[in-house]
Design a protein around this nucleic acid. Sequence first.
DNA 1: CTGTTAGCGCTTTCAT
DNA 2: ATGAAAGCGCTAACAG
Lengths: 341, 341
Amino acid sequence: MGKKRVTLADVARLAGLSTTAASMILTGRPDTRLSPEAHKKVHDAAASLGYRPNVAARALRTDKSRSIAFISDYVATTRFASGLIRGALAAAEEAKHVMLLLETGGEPAREIQAVEAALDRQVDGLIFAAMRAREVFVPDMAINVPVVMLNGTSARFSSSVLPDEYQGGRTAVEFLVRAGIRDDIVLLGHNAQQEEGLFRSEAISNRLRGIRDAMSDAGMAFLAEVSCWNWEPNFGYELTRKVLKTHRPRALLCLNDRLAFGAYQALGEAGLRIPEDIGLVSFDNDEIAGYLRPGLTTIGLPHEDMGHRAVQRLLEGPLTPGADLLAMPAIWRGSLPEKQA
Amino acid sequence: MGKKRVTLADVARLAGLSTTAASMILTGRPDTRLSPEAHKKVHDAAASLGYRPNVAARALRTDKSRSIAFISDYVATTRFASGLIRGALAAAEEAKHVMLLLETGGEPAREIQAVEAALDRQVDGLIFAAMRAREVFVPDMAINVPVVMLNGTSARFSSSVLPDEYQGGRTAVEFLVRAGIRDDIVLLGHNAQQEEGLFRSEAISNRLRGIRDAMSDAGMAFLAEVSCWNWEPNFGYELTRKVLKTHRPRALLCLNDRLAFGAYQALGEAGLRIPEDIGLVSFDNDEIAGYLRPGLTTIGLPHEDMGHRAVQRLLEGPLTPGADLLAMPAIWRGSLPEKQA
DNA sequence: CTGTTAGCGCTTTCAT
DNA sequence: ATGAAAGCGCTAACAG
């Protein structure tokens, strides 16, 4: 059992050629022209022996390991992770690379360990992913390999892939207009701290800027803006109940689907029908958005595209600086009326 | 920029010793006793140079790469993936290993490629994960490394980590009893094909066996069993509506949370209050379970534990055969009455 | 057009 | 107690 792995020398021997020849033929280097018979012999030998190159040996020699590291702050906490990871994985596979997954919890000490672990294994590049868009700390030693920031930014590494939140914000308003709703719209979940203040999030403030620009371009204004700290369903529920005490909105523009989910619950209790009495638009295209009755119209995040694009940029030759803004897919479901009310 | 990486030879030179000595000291081999001063000199030199071992070189020499591969059929499709992955990642990190993530889509061709890619990189072991518990095809060449099956089984590799579905099933019934509900219980989502038939799933049939055994042990019987093919919310919704036309159940035992979510919607429309009029228990501890009003009482899947345990087994010395059954956490929320009704 | 040779950075006998 | 030397599997100069 466990017979020794087949090496290049074995292949060369069987083919009756030197390892050099075998190496050149199998790696398909173009400049050298060995005879067609030599090619065939080597390929046949490799196939019949079931030869597989030893990547460690090759990496030692060439400093290329055909692997990248995906370093993320969180992989489980959020439903965003899997899309980013899956997209990245697909792009890595297309480029015949393999992907190391590392989690840091956002802690600098673990970030350093993760980068070290990756560098120790000669990775060809690093993806730094953030689950909530933010400025990310990237350890110094990462300077020696290509780095692409995913869903986050870094002062040091400008290559990044981000959702086009501004355009997404505009689209949400356009959806309202398309549904014939121009007045009595309540903005749900706005948070001044994130938009402008201490906990400013570039993503959220771009989204809101898109919303506000589109509103003012269309000559519209919100009936009210209710803010909350946390975008969880129970906040959406409480906020909506509060709003209904004093206002009778025609639509709710929710800053994410979980808030909208809470709003559905409150609306249901109040006996309001969606979309006849009140319409909703929201963001994220969370899994629940499709499960609600009626389905929630929402502006999704292009996570899978983002992951894919990030790895593609990392691997496609010289790294270009700058941010890559990916379109947020708009998903029209039943929570807005089909046409002019 | 890009100065050559520090090698062991550099460390040895600075310490004024041979690379042999440096190697022995840094890898901390116990049997050889070099002088304490030698130890100090080498460690100091390594630290001041920022030395990091080259894992590729070490792997070439020792056939150990301090890395494992997590080969999964799907990483995104299901909300189960992230827990399994996260647990595995944590265990790998504890063991100072790094984890390659590979996705196969359940396609044999990609499974072979994944195993090859992993083996080419000298991984120390393989985790084969299935998102829906099932018999998994594992390519031949995987025979040369330790393999642990995660949430699935394989005829060839008996080491596996699975949820204890049987006990989980029993717990669900115990919850009903604890809530004082012994009669008029409807089982929602049972599927004969999965329980016994063509698409038999070991996991689901164990879960159902646990449920049935506990019911009969307690001298209870279902008021009705309604089955469906797909465990999605709209099935739960339709099924519940159908049930309500002919029965007035005191509780619904749902086979997963998405079914239960659909049931909530139908129950809400019918004006039935949870848990006063009707109670619910379910399985999975999906994210939505905590968002519903009232919260859904559910028997969760121990994904994170499972991932952790699988990697632990893979890495802790000789692989023991057999299945490791992990307890399913029971989460009591508001969808069952607190005490005897 | 093909083969010989010299390492990549590390661990490990085997001498001293 | 320490060091010299060989070699893991591969690629890239350099000869022939």
